[in-house]
Design a protein around this nucleic acid. Structure first.
Lengths: 121, 121, 121, 121
DNA sequence: GTGGTCTAGACCACT
DNA sequence: GTGGTCTAGACCACG
């Protein structure tokens, strides 16, 4: 479980943690049933408050990605293959549409957008 | 000057306005010297507070994209071609790197990322 | 907006607040668009922490009952009549099934359960 | 002795076990003197920790419903008919008042509450 | 030892 | 003045 946060970023710390774990679940890197590390452990490792980590966990639970069993920990929820694939698609489409929207309004052509993608990947 | 905002979005209204105008300036759609519409007009059209629009204008001025001439309004600043091109590049690179980062952590390959771009453009 | 909490109860304070407001929304007592009182006000009135009130607000938002507009407050979300009726039905059915389950396992007949209901209403 | 637990429920496992056994005792399904199954057996059957079952047993003993005889097991305590009836009444009244409170705050009339009860019993 | 809840108080972003 | 985020620390319920 690799996590990292940028404290000064414009996007909230708990959201950063949320998207990292979310991506790992949707990509299959974190399989169903897997236990997440205890919030206190994560808190120490990242140097943020326990409450901040808890905020990320809450968001993950609200998104239906994990479930918490009080007293024993938090675990990656079982998602059907199609559910997971759908959420994964939605995530990439959202990111993609932001890129496309930006590129278009900045006056880039499709060809240029593709070349840049190849160049920076 | 076409603007639109999504009030319920997670990204602040003033930032939405900022990026739309910013993109139009960097793409050349809004040429140097062009007058921005009065704050109150924009406020009414978008149905947001005058203060919110003012925030967007401030951000644009801080970014060096517009200048305010007291009593007559706000105008697109004159940028050298190279300056403009550099800012435009930075803007697209930032958007691109976010897309790439998301795609990678979701487990997509470069080829898939390209195909999606072509499909959704 | 009438609220009351029992601090020593077995059910968390934020949950108590949640269900009271939730019921008022589903029963139509709180119409769509209505502004909820500021969390700090509620906090003072009930004598609980701001954070506790926020927990209730978060739960309401997660349940799709309210929406928060940063800087201006929290508002009752617009629900279609059928949506509202469905959520209201679900709420009463959940409460009802708990009553029935208890009554049955305690050995009460349907007739007795009805008589008790009439007696205590 | 039939027991079942829902691990993901919002109400603690030991409480679920407690109320099931409690109801069976108060309804007379489990007569005085009857032996409860060994903790380890219940633990295996339900797939929960021994400590959890122990918690339920403790709660039952604290409620005066069972007694433990060291070395031989736990047994349903002898209750006078009036004692048992009083506890049974209290249990149903508590469940009933929760249903009524919910129904009222959701805007249901007594008549509707009765009809629903008949319908879902 | 695990998560769940709560307090008191601070600073920031937004309207 | 509104909500959003975060800190530091405490106590409880649960397994």
């Amino acid at each position: 479980m690799r996590l990292s946060v940028l404290p000064g970023s414009e996007i909230p710390v708990y959201r950063q943690i949320f998207s990292q774990i979310s991506s790992q679940i949707l990509s299959g890197a974190l399989p169903a049933g897997e236990a997440l590390p205890p919030i206190r452990t994560v808190s120490k490792e990242l140097g943020v408050s326990v409450i901040t980590v808890r905020g990320a966990w809450d968001a993950l639970e609200a998104a239906g990605l994990i479930e918490t069993r009080t007293g024993s920990g938090c675990f990656v929820k079982a998602l059907s293959g199609s559910e997971r694939e759908e959420m994964r698609s939605q995530a990439i489409e959202k990111a993609l549409s932001e890129y496309i929207e930006n590129a278009k309004s900045l006056g880039y052509s499709e060809r240029e957008a593709e070349n840049l993608l190849r160049e920076y990947w």
